[in-house]
């Protein structure tokens, strides 16, 4: 993998924050990654970043945050790389971002697929990735349960 900081790091690529579970699940995943010794970074648009930052005012879970366009530019320019890529997907845009990250890095990305249309979206993904999919819109528990099942294995690959 090219770029810097690629070992015990992970990036959470947030989508549009219109689905309520995104912020809660992101904070949960940030916490779980830190407990496993992984340094997480959050990439997202301004609204998505502000939601996680405001939810964690003392920064117990949220560390560095990066603008989404900057994140993609840095990946494409081989300026920066991460050990793990978690992409939050609840619409077609999320699939596009996941495909972009997978194509640029050559890494297997972890696709966190949720929302009303999670099955349809999961089926539309044809590139290599680990899919964690659940019908989570307001209730984050189905997605949290799947993250708990998969995360130890995902992190063990770092």
């Amino acid at each position: 993998m090219s770029g810097k900081e690629s070992d015990k790091t992970a990036v959470l690529v947030l989508g549009c924050p219109q689905v309520p579970v995104q912020t809660g699940v992101a904070l949960y995943l940030l916490h779980a990654l830190r407990k496993k010794g992984v340094v997480p970074v959050v990439a997202g648009n301004r609204a998505a970043r502000m939601l996680v930052e405001v939810s964690d005012p003392e920064r117990h879970y949220v560390g560095e945050t990066v603008d989404l366009d900057r994140f993609i530019d840095d990946l494409a320019g081989k300026v920066r790389a991460y050990g793990l890529y978690f992409i939050f997907i609840h619409n077609d845009s999320g699939v596009s971002y996941a495909a972009t990250v997978q194509s640029i890095t050559g890494s297997t990305v972890v696709a966190l697929i949720y929302g009303e249309h999670f099955e349809e979206i999961a089926e539309s993904i044809e590139f290599p990735c680990e899919k964690i999919a659940a019908k989570a819109v307001h209730n984050p528990m189905p997605l949290r349960k799947k993250i708990d099942e998969v995360l130890p294995w995902v992190v063990s690959n770092l």
């Binding site: 366009d69 530019d73 494409a76 320019g77 699939v95 596009s96 971002y97 972009t100 590139f127």
Partner: peptide, 8 residues
């Protein structure tokens, strides 16, 4: 001058 996002 910007990276294109999408499914290849």
């Amino acid at each position: 001058e910007k990276a294109v996002v999408g499914v290849p």
